[in-house]
Structures are given as C-alpha cells and as structure tokens.
C-alpha cells in the first residue's frame, strides 16, 4: 500500500482577504520528495505556502499537512502543526536579539524540550549538518547572508520535520551561496527523507537542481513533470 502524502490539498481555494488568489488547487507531496513552486511574483506562491503552515486559514476545500487537517486548525493548534514543519524564509527571520545558539535553543524550549544536555546535543547536531558548528556564539547580524540562511535551515531541522517549506530561500543570496543552500536542502531531503516544498523564481537554480515543479499562473496551480524554460 502506498504511503499517504506528507502534504495534500484537494479542491482548495486560497484567499487573501476576500480576493481569490488560487482556485481549485490539487496537489500531493510524498515522503522525501523535493518540489519547486514557481511562478511570477504575486501569483500566489507565498499564499500557498502560508496556507500549508497555517498562517492563512483554509476556507474552502480539504487539506492535510503532516497529519493535521488544515480546516480544523485554530490559533490554539497551529503551534503544534508548525512543530512538525520546518519553515525557511527568504529574509531568514532569525531572532535578532540573541545569538545563533540561543535562536535554536528558543525553538527547542518553545516546542517542549526540557533536557538541557539533549538540547545542547541537538543544537550542535543541526549546526554541524549546516556547516556552522563553530558559529553558535555569533549574533545573526554578524553572519553573512548565506550563513544566516544556513541557521534558518538548521532551525527548521531542529524537530526533525517531515516537511520543510522554504519561501524563496535563495532570493537574497549570490549564485555560489545559492548553490550551497540548494545542495544542503537536497541533501536533507535525500538523507533524512524530509519532503521539501520550495517557492522560487530563480530558474537557474531549477536548471542546476532539477526536480518536480508546481507552477502558479492565472489563479491556478499547474503540476508539471518538468519545467519548461521557454
């Protein structure tokens, strides 16, 4: 029997305020799958991701993400959905008032971790995975853009999520750094079986790291097996 999808939307309409952004969205993402979400600015990529991590309420249609029914999500239950997800932002969104180690520590404490030794172990583990083991004491503004994005990814990996949602994670980075970040994300998907949905409009990245592509255009999500660069 096939494993049930990590994220699934059926006949979903996505609204921003009262404007319909995407209509009749159907998609399913399996375990360990790497999926690009492409489309011009303003076509609803971010809105789709925000629906998946519960920042936009699901008003119409059915949706399940890492076992959570999106239509049943409330402000009380949304933190528990997010603990099973890793969210990576274009602008990093690290806690600017504390260092890298404390940034990661905050996430662990806020998601119910108590054992200090295990927390320390986990922080060192994820920093090692993203190649920043020696930078835990640095404040976010002391890091380069690529390093900050790595911290962001390390943060997303803390609770060993089944799904990472990345909103233009290479948007603010130069091409070499972008390549590093992409390799890291692919490595995570391959090594840990973590599914990744990544919104981007960086076609060079798609060329270098080909994978399944979902395209947002004219209020629809089109599921392409491959991307056309025409």
């Amino acid at each position: 029997m096939a494993e049930s999808p990590i994220a699934e939307l059926r006949n979903v309409n996505i609204y921003q305020s009262n404007a319909l952004i995407l209509g009749n969205v159907n998609l399913a993402v399996s375990k360990g799958e790497f999926v690009y979400l492409v489309g011009k600015t303003g076509t609803g990529k971010s809105s789709l991701l925000r629906t998946l991590y519960g920042d936009l309420p699901l008003r119409e249609g059915e949706g399940r993400v890492v076992g959570f029914d999106l239509s049943q999500i409330t402000w009380k239950t949304v933190p528990y959905l997010r603990r099973n997800l890793g969210v990576v932002f274009q602008d990093f969104q690290l806690l600017t008032d504390r260092n890298v180690h404390e940034n990661l520590g905050f996430v662990l404490r806020s998601t119910g971790w108590k054992d200090k030794e295990r927390m320390e172990e986990k922080i060192n583990d994820v920093l090692d995975k993203v190649g920043l083991k020696t930078k835990g004491f640095k404040m976010p503004f002391e890091l380069s853009g690529g390093e900050q994005q790595r911290v962001d990814i390390a943060r997303a990996m803390l609770n060993s999520p089944k799904l990472i949602l990345a909103d233009e994670p290479t948007g603010n980075l130069d091409p070499e750094t972008s390549d590093d970040i992409m390799q890291l994300l692919f490595q995570i998907a391959r090594d840990y079986g973590t599914s990744v949905i990544m919104a981007t409009h960086d076609y060079i990245v798609l060329q270098k790291f080909p994978s399944r592509v979902l395209r947002t255009e004219q209020g629809k999500v089109v599921d392409n097996a491959t991307v056309s660069f025409a």
Binding site: Y80, R82, F89, F106
Partner: peptide, 17 residues
C-alpha cells in the same frame, strides 16, 4: 513585532511567547 511573529512561526504557543 517581527520577533514575536518569528517565535510564532517556529511553533511557540501564544502563552510561551
């Protein structure tokens, strides 16, 4: 405000924040 929002994005409950 962004600090608060980020805390929320990583799965912290309102009370914890």
């Amino acid at each position: 405000r962004f600090l608060i929002k980020t805390m929320q994005m990583v799965g912290a409950t309102r009370w914890f924040i």
